[in-house]
Design a protein around this nucleic acid. Structure first.
Lengths: 297, 297
DNA sequence: AGCGGTAATACCTTGTCGGTATCACCAACT
DNA sequence: AGTTGGTGATACCGACAAGGTATTACCGCT
């Protein structure tokens, strides 16, 4: 049973005439007669009762006509769905991100994305930066919003640099170092430091260690909480000096703490990452939108 | 887009291998490659991503695979439904009948029919005998349970004689004629008669008139109600003598009225009628069942 | 480097589909 | 009643698409 045959049958059953149906289908009448006869043979039962001048639909034919309508409709719809999916206008986007530093960025992009691609379902997954990389690599995510990994393990993964930001020290307002114009890494020597746990972000954590190492001293890690907000809480309570990316400043109350850029500048960045081989049109649409938004505003 | 192509695509997408899929489909691998390529061309988008040694399903392909599953399932189911319908095992039977005299007969047959053909929906329509004939003729009913029509207007309609029954007189128990052994039509001369309205059944009504005519007198019609039960009510109230088919006796209380066969016997019959040209398998199944039940019990 | 296995390509064969011409038949209208 | 127009079926033919065979190009794995 083929869709072509069903289309033919449908035409005849609707027109109740082989010749008119043939005309409508732009084929010759004998071809149509044969097609219907073959279909009847295949199903083992007459579908149209023809007594030389009148065509009637048999009960079996009536059933087939109904089913054919459904079938042909679904087939057409399926083709459209496939094409929409190919254009990135339909489907789903599994997007992994790393939490606070990406939330404001995500919010803006997603708002616009949902407007332009309303039939795409965005599935958000919050994970650690390494886990995001791993999941993108394994295909469990279509797209990751994360920090670059230190190791060069970008096997076939495409990245797009979104933002670079300097590392800052966070101090309680009353801290002696809070009033200097510009803070040197070396000033942190001996100070109790509060840094995000390494398991929550190898890139960021190691970058802090690197800053200290370049300034020629080993850091004194007082606490390594697993949530960025907790770093700020520790600082507020006077437990030490926090080292965080600049964007974290937006999370903090401005009067109780001060953020000081550290010199020499150590940059941490935010990237989009995806598997180019997967050639997912939704991913491409999303990246295109991100590029566009970065260019315009 | 053809079902054949979709079957091919499905095989490849499931096996994730052209050669294995080709084996499963019992065709050669190059044919498969071409079929899938053509399908991709038709839909205007890659469905399978093949990098020489691995086959992956693209997002568009995943969508098509899902839709294909539905489509092929429905197609198969449709074919089965058509075949079941052709065998009379599925579908509907629009059955017209004429009321009281057929109810007991119908009940028995329908009970058995529903057991043997549980997927056939029986639609019952109660009409006058003429209306049943007309509807069967016009194809608005598949089958009629009615009385034969007097006119020979059985154009292509097949009939099956179910039952013949004599006409009876119904009298109140106290009536002078109630005690005679056998009642002659001629005894009805001058008696007020109660007969079913002609519009409710030309055949029955005219047969009563014929009985009187043969006995050589014109009937005195006291009442012609449109419901058989009302005939009995009139008789009970002493309004006259009813003339009804024998089977109506089952409707009446035995103590207040008596039923007397009329001589010479005038038979009215009950027939099944259907349009042979329609070749409806459900109709044939029903008739076969009726014949079988009449033969056995 | 060589082997096994993959999908793609080139080319040929065949079966199927569609077209033309014609027939048989019925219906409606002279 | 005979004719004519229109129906679907049949016979036959041609074209093209589908499938098959042989081969190539490429990759991963020994």
């Amino acid at each position: 049973m083929e869709l072509r045959t069903l289309r033919y049958f449908q035409a005849v059953a609707e027109e109740l005439s082989f010749s008119r149906a043939a005309e409508r289908l732009h084929i010759a009448q004998p071809a149509l007669s044969r097609a219907v006869r073959d279909l009847e043979e295949e199903l083992g039962t007459p579908l149209l009762a023809r007594n030389k001048h009148k065509v009637r639909v048999t009960p079996a034919g009536a059933v087939l006509l109904r089913e054919t309508g459904v079938l042909l409709g679904l087939a057409e719809e399926a083709a459209r769905k496939v094409q929409r999916t190919a254009l990135g206008q339909e489907g789903e986007l599994r997007l992994g991100y790393i939490g606070p530093p990406t939330r404001d960025f995500l919010a803006g992009v997603l708002r616009e994305f949902r407007i332009r691609y309303p039939r795409v379902t965005v599935i958000l997954e919050e994970r650690t930066p390494e886990r995001v990389w791993e999941m993108v690599l394994k295909g469990r995510l279509d797209l990751g919003l994360t920090r670059p990994v230190t190791a060069g393990e970008r096997l076939g993964l495409e990245t797009l640099l979104l933002r670079e930001e300097p590392l800052c020290a966070v101090l309680p307002s009353g801290h002696p170092l809070a009033k200097v114009e510009s803070l040197e890494w070396s000033s942190l020597r001996g100070q109790p430091l509060i840094v995000l746990a390494r398991r929550e972000g190898v890139g960021l954590h190691d970058r802090v260690l690197l800053g200290c190492q370049r300034a020629g001293f080993p850091p004194t890690l007082a606490h390594t909480p697993s949530i960025v907000g907790t770093v700020l809480t520790y600082v507020e309570s006077g437990a030490g000096i926090g080292v965080v990316p600049e964007s974290v400043a937006t999370l903090a109350g401005a009067d109780t703490m001060v953020f000081k850029p550290l010199h020499p500048v150590e940059l941490v960045s935010l990237v989009l990452v995806w598997n180019r081989e997967h050639e997912n049109p939704v991913v491409e649409a999303f990246c295109a939108l991100v590029r566009e938004l970065m260019a315009t505003g």
